[in-house]
């Protein structure tokens, strides 16, 4: 589940593996005395989630920097082709998931890919169950309107 959550946020299998691996290492090295196994579990999930979000943020920044440089390098026709290719990726739901604000994305990923209950998600994120419920709802609506805004018919 950790790997799935990491993958859905970070985007690649390699990144997911690294993030989860590193999170376990941190758990072992820090020797934090958790009161219960659940506490350890939630800590670990939180660390993985944050690691994946940070990775995605970093990658996004790098990608945008490359984009800016690349657009400068290309001629106009080549640039348009690139844009068409990029639009293909819009078919991927991941493209839209990445556009969600982090706090909404986290809840949705933990729910849909982590299979966690609102209560558990609340423990991982340090928010109330009610807050999780609202965020899950908002995340869904935001994702749907992003997709439908791009003409992706959902239902």
């Amino acid at each position: 589940m950790l790997v799935r959550v990491a993958y859905r946020i970070a985007g690649t299998e390699e990144a997911a593996e690294d993030i989860v691996h590193e999170s376990f290492i941190r758990l072992i090295e820090k020797r934090i005395p958790f009161a219960t196994l659940d506490d350890a579990k939630f800590w670990l999930i939180r660390v993985v989630k944050n690691g994946a979000l940070n990775y995605a943020k970093r990658k996004g920044r790098e990608a945008r920097a490359y984009e800016r440089w690349w657009r400068g390098e290309r001629t106009e026709t080549e640039a348009t082709e690139q844009e068409v290719l990029r639009d293909e990726s819009k078919g991927e739901i991941r493209h839209y998931l990445d556009k969600l604000p982090e706090n909404l994305r986290s809840v949705l990923v933990l729910k849909e890919y982590g299979g966690m209950s609102y209560k558990e998600i609340g423990k991982v994120l340090g928010i109330t169950e009610g807050n999780v419920k609202v965020r899950a709802f908002r995340a869904r609506e935001a994702l749907l309107s992003l997709m439908e805004g791009d003409g992706k018919h959902v239902s």
Binding site: P33, T36, A40
Partner: peptide, 8 residues
């Protein structure tokens, strides 16, 4: 994991 770092 539990035996390593769970303490009541």
């Amino acid at each position: 994991a539990a035996t390593t770092f769970i303490r009541p």
